[in-house]
């Protein structure tokens, strides 16, 4: 049995474990999606999705709903599913993609930049010489390098967070900026970094040396 919070494992990682391990059983999911609270189960046979159900749906729409869960709880119970009718014939990656495309553009962008409270840093390689950037992108780069979040920049430039996010995502894809952490919603306290703490890595190195 595998059980925990989606804070500790992402849903994609849970799916990977089940699929790689060619597991048979029921994955129970419960949590928040952009479309409200969802609860249900996905049935797996030898690592492949066989069927799914939520309060509302059965089959593919149920999987799509369940795969949209971002925060919540999961539990995988190995059990016989031979009595369950096969209602789904798509691979896990295809189902994950379906779920993703159901989220609207805003959600897709949000996934790419992780948060509108993210803080970015100019990459050490600098800006490629012959790249063409719009005046707005240049302004955004300058504000990002001062440590402003997407939310703060949107306020400052009188743009929507969606538009700023799109530009920032473009800059990330071009490797001009890199996300380094997040601030809280008031834009004050630094609450999370994507990189690890230096202290953690140093202690891990010490720990490994001793093993």
């Amino acid at each position: 049995m595998l059980e925990g919070s989606l804070k500790d494992f992402t849903l994609d990682e849970v799916l990977q474990i089940i699929s790689m391990g060619e597991k048979t059983g029921r994955l129970i999911l419960k949590g928040e999606t952009p479309f409200g609270k969802k609860e249900g189960a996905i049935f797996f046979e030898r690592g492949q999705v066989k069927d799914a159900e939520t309060e509302q749906y059965r089959g593919e729409p149920a999987v799509v709903d369940l795969l949209s869960i971002k925060e919540g709880y999961f539990k995988f119970v190995p059990e016989d599913v031979s009595h369950i009718k096969q209602s789904i014939n798509k691979s896990i990656p295809d189902l994950v993609l379906l779920a993703t495309s159901k989220l609207d553009e805003w959600d897709r962008i949000k996934n790419k930049i992780s948060s509108v409270d993210s803080v970015f840093k100019l990459s050490s390689d600098g800006i490629p010489e012959r790249i063409h950037l719009t005046p707005t992108q240049w302004r955004i780069i300058s504000l990002l390098s001062k440590g402003l979040t997407i939310r703060q920049i949107a306020l400052k430039l009188n743009m929507t967070v969606i538009d700023v996010s799109k530009d920032v995502y473009g800059l990330v894809a071009l490797k001009i900026v890199r996300e380094v952490g997040q601030k809280d919603a008031e834009g004050k306290r630094f609450v999370k970094r994507r990189g690890a703490s230096r202290n953690f890595i140093i202690r891990l190195i010490e720990r490994l040396k001793r093993v």
Partner: peptide
């Protein structure tokens, strides 16, 4: 880690 593990899930996954 807040996770319950067992032989059924110890596939290509490691932990330190």
């Amino acid at each position: 880690a807040g996770i319950k593990d067992s032989t059924t899930v110890a596939m290509d996954f490691g932990r330190i």
